[in-house]
Design a protein around this nucleic acid. Structure first.
Length: 585
DNA sequence: GCCGTTTTCGGCCCGACTGTTTTCAGTCG
């Protein structure tokens, strides 16, 4: 930002539109209007370009989903930092009104009634009127509803609403193991955002084919991992695990599987587009099948046995779940230019791993042997540098000692006939001024260098961005570690112009890391497609601090796929020899 | 509020479960 322009972020634009949608719902506004605001928010969030600048310059015309009304509002907000329409809406409700939407079972109609009749504008006040019994004056609020609200409030107080990929993946595997023991269960599939590879997951969706849906539902609802049952019908069950993770199960017939899988995999935005394309072909799609819109003029509907058949009917290539976000996959599928996505088996090694020398808990040899057990051909060690004293970072002399240890280990592997190489690196701190924590002559001793930010998270965006660009401009830097420093569900990314860093990385031929740690998954998948097209190479790194940590690579692969990355876009799919050549070794 | 190879007006994805309003509205995904 410059020239005293208001400091409005993409998130501000999107969140404002979302809140307008919510507030309009509370006013009982036309649901299609509120949806238009929500769509607009999603468009702003996922737009590939500097949407804030475009809005500030009033050049939004032509972006699908942003019509005249939203253009004007976004322009006003981006150029002045304020939006009168929004402020007037906000003034009609307390600031805490939004938290009521986090209570399961409460939607706009009930919240509107609560607010208008009982002045309920916060969760605290909601709890009061439920406990005092005042709420039963309202139509539609019976005993059961009140009990459910109180339970949902208690639940929210105890549990977060989102989960990292690792937690969600392990829960899904445990539940699938359980489902496989059911005699009535046929095919078992995990759908939803987990299947799409999202970095965090709000709930898990299971599909089970069966001839006896009631039995599957009953068994699921009675499973030992169920902490709380939200709904229990004859084809659908929703439960919470004791960590709060919500799990939904649908019992369906085998014929319905491709439709249900497509439907419940989403994303919502992708599904809307699929349905719209189906409608243009004269059919309506739901989770059970395809039906002609007009029986008299029914088109010929082919047999649908797989999701691929559904896409084929739309004259599209099969779109992998990772790409189903309505972010360009339909055009690519129509043109036959969908990427062949990277797979876990493509990885031959990995960089950015720690040992006991800094803050890891496994020795050099233990880490190397764990990598060998995973089928890898090489492993990059990159312990912290001295400024990360909290992580026992290495100074130049300890680093030299470690380099010698690595050379020795490689010799031992050679003598043992093990075809494996350890690369000597460092995760060198990017200092506040953009210089590096080791002088160039020390860095020159290393096989490769990961440069990362570990402090001064609160620098202004311009300064933080320049600091990182200065660091990766050092020719000794091979790759940039965890670009934004975010800790999912815990710490926001620091303010940094990711696009400017990507451009600099392309310019300086610096690799950008995809940190596979499920708490990071940084750089975010939304940037990879465009970074790839700008010629930036990726390295998928587990940032392992233990032998087990190496297994986090799978989550990096999930996110790389989500970012449209192919095998050739990722350094550590290359052979040892190719990597050596790349590193000039 | 957005949008147009049926349309500048009249549509906008669709169904399960719950609780309560005894025939359906609200919520959720």
């Amino acid at each position: 930002m410059s020239n005293g322009a208001p400091n409005v972020s993409r998130d501000t634009l999107a969140t404002t539109l979302e809140q307008i949608a919510t507030l309009l719902e509370l006013q009982g506004e036309n649901p299609f209007k509120t949806r238009a605001y929500r769509n607009g928010a999603e468009t702003v969030r996922s737009y590939d370009g500097d949407i804030v600048a475009i809005a500030a310059n009033n050049e939004l015309a032509g972006i699908p989903g942003i019509g005249k009304a939203l253009q004007d509002k976004l322009h006003e907000l981006a150029s002045t930092g304020k939006l009168e329409f929004y402020d007037k809406l906000r003034a009609q409700f307390p600031d805490t009104i939004f938290e009521l939407f986090e209570i399961q079972g409460l939607g706009p109609k009930k919240i509107k009634a609560l607010y208008q009749e009982l002045e309920v504008g916060s969760i605290a006040r909601l709890k009061e009127v439920c406990e005092s019994g005042e709420v039963s004056q309202l139509g539609g609020f019976g005993k059961k509803t009140v009990a459910n609200i109180l339970e949902a409030i208690a639940f929210r107080e105890q549990n977060a609403s989102s989960f990292d990929r690792k937690t969600a993946t392990h829960a899904a595997e445990m539940i699938c193991d359980f489902l496989r023991t059911l005699p009535d269960a046929g095919q078992i599939e995990v759908a939803g955002s987990l299947r799409r590879g999202k970095e965090t997951v709000g709930d898990l969706d299971f599909l089970v084919t069966t001839k006896n849906p009631q039995a599957v539902c009953d068994a699921f609802a009675a499973a030992p991992f169920v902490d709380r049952t939200i709904a229990h019908g004859s084809t659908k069950v929703s439960i919470n695990l004791d960590n709060g993770l919500q799990c939904d199960l649908r019992a369906i017939s085998a014929d319905e599987l491709p439709f249900a899988l497509s439907y419940f995999t989403g994303s919502k935005e992708h599904n809307v587009e699929v349905r719209s394309r189906m409608r243009k072909r004269g059919v309506s799609l739901n989770e059970y099948g395809l039906t002609p819109i007009d029986e008299a003029n029914a088109p010929e509907i082919p047999e649908i046995r797989t999701e691929a058949d559904l896409y084929k009917f739309l004259e599209l290539d099969y779109i992998p779940p990772a790409l189903r976000e309505n972010r360009g996959e339909f055009d690519a599928a129509a043109e036959g230019t969908l990427p062949r996505l990277i797979e876990l088996g493509d990885l031959r090694g990995t960089f950015h791993n720690h040992t006991v020398a800094s803050d890891g808990n496994a020795t050099l040899r233990e880490m190397a042997e764990a990598a060998i057990d995973l089928g890898l051909e090489y492993l990059g060690i990159a312990d912290h540098s001295k400024s990360s004293f909290q992580a026992n970072g290495l100074d130049a002399s300890r680093l030299q000692w470690q380099i010698d240890e690595i050379r020795k280990l490689n010799d031992e592997f050679k003598q043992e006939g093990v075809n494996f190489r350890v690369f000597a690196g460092s995760e060198v701190d990017i200092l506040k001024d953009g210089s590096l924590d080791f002088p160039d002559d020390v860095l020159a001793q290393l096989d490769y260098v990961v440069a990362s930010v570990h402090n001064a998270f609160t620098l202004p965006e311009a300064q933080q961005t320049q600091r990182i660009i200065d660091a990766i401009s050092n020719p000794h830097v091979t790759m940039l570690g965890h670009l934004t420093g975010r800790l999912l569900l815990k710490r926001e990314p620091y303010a940094v112009d990711v696009n400017a860093v990507i451009d600099a990385a392309a310019e300086t031929k610096t690799i950008i890391e995809l940190n596979a740690n499920p708490r990071r998954l940084d750089m975010d998948w939304r940037h990879w497609h465009s970074a790839r097209d700008r010629g930036v190479l990726c390295s998928i790194n587990p940032d392992a601090h233990s032998t087990k940590g190496l297994q986090m690579l799978r989550f990096g692969i999930d996110v790389a796929r989500k970012g449209w990355l192919r095998k050739q876009d990722v350094l550590n799919t290359r052979t040892t020899r190719e990597v050596e050549r790349y590193l000039n070794l």
